[in-house]
Amino acid sequence: MDRTLADTKPGEKVELVGINGGGRCFINRLTEMGLVPGSRLEVECGGMHGPTIVVVKGVRLALGQGMAHRVLVRKIPAGGKA
């Protein structure tokens, strides 16, 4: 079941499945920051309120307003490497 990053809780480890909407430029930007399908994200701060900070490939990224709602994720199955 796909959820968005806005539905995650701090400390959760999830896998990026896709991005909702946005042109090529938008996707390119996320790609070069390391947000590609298959990336493992560690949610540092999240939820509907407050800032969204994720750790991707060892880098801490802050996602702005609305961005968290566009990032589709799924839980990493138990035993998966984070």
């Binding site: 946005g22 930007r29 900070i53 990224l61 802050a62 702005g64 961005m67 566009r70």
Partner: peptide, 10 residues
């Protein structure tokens, strides 16, 4: 134009 996604490295 398309608004820029706010993704910033901390």
């Amino acid at each position: 134009g398309e608004s820029v996604p706010f993704v910033m490295e901390l």
